[in-house]
Amino acid sequence: MNIFRLAGDMSHLFSILLLLLKIHTIKSCAGVSLKTQELYALVFATRYLDIFTGYISLYNTLMKMFFLWSSFTIVWYMRYHNVVRRSYDKDQDTFRHYFLILPCFILALLVHEKFTFLEVLWTFSLYLEAVAILPQLVLLQRTRNVDNLTGHYVFFLGAYRSFYILNWIYRYFTEQNYYKWITWISGLVQTALYADFFYYYVKSWRNSERLQLPA
């Protein structure tokens, strides 16, 4: 574990805590895409099946359990909680997320390291995570005026991805035989999707204005 990896994991954890704070405390999920949250729940459910088959560290297992629990909790809140579900922008959150799942699955069947059940699902989760933020970014663009918590949530998610890239560069130079092409390429695609958002986030932060994305 290097400092970039830890910073990445902590940004990821923090982004989810921010979202849970918004949903649980303010009882609002305005501006949050349920489509993206459902995709993340699927990403974690297909990637972390290995908690049953192998052990890496207590840290690793606890983080996986947290990501699984939190993603399904957020989806539950947005779908079924009496108060929270009323604040969901259903009419704006129209991205057809099902159309992302099938291509990612087909790609995972074609491009993977080993053709085993767990490996294909793990690869699928990487491809799906790369594009899972798209419904959220589309929703942000539609809502234009983004509330602070939602903006910070997306910012810390993007920070998590950026730290992971630094972590891969660091590991490439400090470890032997550390090549993970599939992880790297899908990670790069994922981080690139945040570039536009980052630009407007930093701009609004420097001008101390509310985050506004162009139409």
């Binding site: 990821h12 560290s57 983080m63 996986k64 992971y164």
Partner: peptide, 10 residues
């Protein structure tokens, strides 16, 4: 040398 574990990342 640091040992690399398969899929030790989250």
């Amino acid at each position: 040398e640091v040992e690399t574990d398969e899929k030790d990342e989250l």
